[in-house]
Amino acid sequence: SIGMEVCLAPEILARLVVDDEFMNAVTTTKKLPNEVLISIVEKLSLRDAVQMGVLSRRWRSLPNELPRLAFDLNDFLLDDIENYYEDEGSDEELPESDTFAEA
């Protein structure tokens, strides 16, 4: 009979095993370039975008590269906003959320 011995490097062997981590690695955000991740972050509110900083170092550095930021004024003027407008004696409506400003 013909004996056959197959030698595989450990990392290849590891890939042959159906390994969740490897399967995920195929479609991870890891291989996406920064400009793609920025395009994702850009579509979040500023608050959500900043929150993503806890994910990893890479995600934390992304908001620095945003070409524009989405400010939701309600993030900054939580409870006092109605009083603020009363004090000003203004008829103005609350500003619309997610308006954009140049970074």
Binding site: E21, N24, A25, T27, T28, T29, K30, I40, L44, D48, Q51, M52, V54, L55, S56, R57, R58, W59
Partner: peptide, 18 residues
Amino acid sequence: MKGKSPDQIREVFNIKND
């Protein structure tokens, strides 16, 4: 990504907490 906890997002998008 919206409305998910950091851990959930890391899991779904396979992001390693470094």
